[in-house]
């Protein structure tokens, strides 16, 4: 009898633990399903899709099961995210500005002159202390991925500063109206172009100037447009980047932070391909910015940033952050002591 009672007493907690364990297994919530509007220029199987597959795998670790829907038009991606077709999406900084002006200012002209600047900025943004700036309304930026510096390709090697661009014809994408205004403000003639004929127009000499990351040099055979006297201004006009924007209330606690850290962890890997493309451009095509024109270039690009800030496109706080990081890396810059610093 005693033995039975002891057995019962021992079995009860074991049984309870087993039941608890089982119910925990039964009721443990699986990863939260979420749909992603994936912007991929080259479609499924292309490089952007591959990146999203890696992200999808990582997200599973953070408790989210992402289903990727592919899109080739990032404007539609932004619209779909807004309308609730999906709860997470990737897009360029320009589109991301519609969801978060702070991070949407990361493509401000000449705000990050080197990849070291970019790394410092992105590391700062990925720290938990920056999380409060990542959220705006119902959306949160859960990652920024570097997409490579954008350079000015010119069919005239004498373009050595921004003022030399005046009077030149520059291709402007119809989907970027603010770019058109910028080109006009800089004294250039905008030539309406599309994503696919922009570089063709440069190669056919229909335009004198175009902007692009180094990868387009080989991929679009820009040597044809650069011949015989052209070159590439060796000063990034902006740092292209892709941003991952999500509806934060659809994500589990801690997801956003893990996600932002994921992109920082892969920073060098993201840039490897881009750096190789930059190294593959013949050295003689790079036009160094003349040292005596550097101050002028810095002042001109600063004016552009301020103009965008005043027209409410760029965020003043981000411009300040970018200026402070520029000054941290090089304290001798004129802007570091200017009374009207950004």
């Amino acid at each position: 009898m005693k033995t039975r009672i002891i057995k019962k007493q021992l079995l009860r907690p074991l049984l309870a633990a087993a039941l608890l364990g089982q119910s925990a297994l039964c009721f443990a919530a699986g990863p939260a399903p979420i749909t992603m509007c994936g912007f991929m220029l080259m479609g499924e199987g292309g490089p952007e899709h591959q990146l999203l597959l890696d992200y999808q795998t990582a997200a599973l670790q953070w408790g989210v099961k992402i289903e990727i829907k592919s899109y080739m038009n990032e404007k539609i991606v932004a619209e779909e995210l807004k309308s609730g077709v999906c709860d997470i999406a990737n897009m360029t900084s320009m589109q991301a500005r519609n969801f978060n002006k702070f991070t949407g200012t990361l493509d401000a002209p000449a705000s990050m002159p080197t990849y070291e600047h970019l790394r410092t900025v992105l590391q700062t943004l990925a720290k938990p202390s920056a999380a409060k700036y990542m959220r705006d309304g119902e959306f949160e930026v859960v990652g920024v991925q570097p997409a490579g510096a954008v350079y000015i390709f010119s069919n005239d090697k004498n373009v050595r500063s921004l003022s030399d661009l005046a009077g030149k014809r520059m291709g402007v994408m119809d989907s970027m109206p603010e770019m058109r205004q910028l080109v006009v403000d800089m004294g250039m003639t905008p030539v309406s172009s599309s994503l696919t004929n922009l570089f063709q127009k440069f190669n056919n000499k229909a335009i004198d100037i175009t902007g692009g990351p180094a990868v387009v040099y080989e991929m679009m055979e820009l040597h044809k447009g650069l011949e015989p006297d052209g070159g590439i201004l060796n000063e990034p006009i902006l740092q292209g980047n892709m941003q991952f924007v999500a509806r934060w209330n659809k994500l589990p606690e801690g997801y956003a932070q893990s996600s932002r850290e994921h992109f920082i962890k892969n920073f060098d890997q993201s840039l490897e391909f881009i750096r190789t493309a930059e190294d593959n451009i013949p050295k003689n095509l790079w036009i160094p910015l003349q040292e005596d024109k550097r101050a002028e270039y810095n002042a001109q690009t600063r004016q552009l940033r301020l103009a965008f800030r005043d027209s409410n496109i760029y965020d003043a706080k981000m411009l300040t952050l970018l200026r402070k990081i520029r000054c941290k890396i090089d304290g001798t810059r004129a802007e570091c002591t200017a009374p009207d610093a950004e």
Binding site: M42, G45, P47, E218, E272, A277
Partner: peptide
């Protein structure tokens, strides 16, 4: 392109 250019295929 899908593996970030690690095989060294020229972009042209």
């Amino acid at each position: 392109l899908s593996i970030g250019g690690t095989a060294g295929v020229a972009l042209d």
